[in-house]
């Protein structure tokens, strides 16, 4: 039945166009409007119409809009604890595991503190898919093959690649296509599969990694704290209820895209699959040192060791839970 209440119009700031990444929040907007007969609406502003992607947290703090998307890697300094989810080789490839771990981390005091300085509170994760590499030339069949490879990778993945001896070259996403086609870089990492396909990377490459899972990042939809506090309790409750169906819609959108892209990649490109032993080696050689360095670098700012331990613990917990079910 319809939820009654005052007329509330919220603005949501995001970048880019309507796509899988925005499917979750679109579902939320649909649900709240439907259940309140249009009394509570969330209007999604695409294409940075309200704010530049990297300034969305500023806009939330100022109160220019009630909700917004942001990604942790856009500005590590603005959300130091969130950067833990950008560490390389965290096992977040499974959708259910990814969702549970991220949901748990959003409640961690360090995560809450990161957002509090922007007068924000996390609402739901964008469940950014695991990154994989697409590349041109000889496929890197072993860990040693990455040495000397010119790669486009950022954040924790970039750090890991450097440990492996790869050469990092910063190229904006919009130029990756040309950079690979012309050999300026050999390989690029992007959220798999949708971002590779969006930038047409698969049309200029020869191979792709499908189980390297070098890392991911955290993009989140946040709410201005004051706006949330002002919301009538029945609307607050509705927002929380909308999360589950929204996550389902989000995962479904990514899965649908993979259903199209994966066969396409497999038919055109050579799939590089690593054995469990090799993956373990990747994690030990290129993962662990980066984790340790991250903890050391952030010691003074917050309890970095605890944040890292919590992630690891939550991953184990979620993996056990979902393994049992399946």
């Amino acid at each position: 039945q319809t939820i009654d209440g005052p007329k509330v119009e919220w603005n949501f700031s995001t970048w880019g166009k309507k796509r899988a990444f925005t499917a979750g929040i679109e579902k939320v907007a649909e649900i709240v409007s439907q259940r309140t007969a249009g009394k509570f609406t969330i209007k999604i502003h695409y294409a940075e119409a309200l704010s530049k992607d990297k300034e969305n947290l500023d806009g939330i703090k100022i109160g220019a809009f009630e909700m917004a998307d942001f990604c942790n890697f856009y500005h590590p300094g603005k959300n130091p604890a969130y950067m833990v989810l950008s560490l390389p080789f965290l096992s977040l490839a499974d959708w259910n595991v990814s969702k549970d771990v991220r949901e748990a981390m959003l409640k961690h005091p360090a995560f809450v503190a990161d957002m509090a300085q922007w007068n924000a509170q996390a609402y739901m994760s964008g469940l950014l898919p695991q990154y994989e590499f697409l590349g041109k030339g000889k496929p890197p069949a072993t860990i040693e093959d990455w040495k000397g490879l010119r790669v486009r990778a950022g954040g924790g993945i970039g750090d890991a690649m450097r440990v492996l001896g790869a050469v990092l070259s910063t190229v904006p996403a919009t130029e990756v296509y040309t950079a690979i086609e012309r050999g300026t870089v050999d390989a690029a990492s992007f959220p798999f599969t949708y971002a590779h396909a969006a930038y047409q990377v698969h049309t200029v490459t020869d191979w792709f990694t499908s189980n390297l899972s070098p890392g991911t990042a955290e993009c989140n939809s946040v709410i201005n704290k004051d706006a949330y506090a002002k919301l009538p309790p029945q609307y607050q409750k509705l927002l929380q209820e909308a999360k589950e169906p929204a996550y389902a819609a989000l995962v479904n959108a990514y899965v649908e895209i993979d259903k199209v892209n994966l066969p396409l990649f497999k038919s055109k490109l050579k799939e590089v699959v690593y054995t469990d032993a090799e993956l373990k080696k990747f994690r030990e050689v290129a993962g662990k040192p980066v984790w340790d360095k991250w903890v050391a670098d952030n010691k003074g700012k917050f309890d970095a060791q605890n944040v890292l331990d919590t992630v690891v613990k939550e991953i184990e917990k979620a993996e056990a839970k979902h393994k049992k079910k399946s």
Partner: peptide, 20 residues
């Protein structure tokens, strides 16, 4: 104000994490 927010939060660039 915008610059001061960056100063207080330690806002940094994407790759090299230079102060902004």
């Amino acid at each position: 104000e915008h610059a001061m927010r960056a100063y207080r939060s330690g806002d940094s660039t994407i790759d090299a994490q230079y102060v902004l």
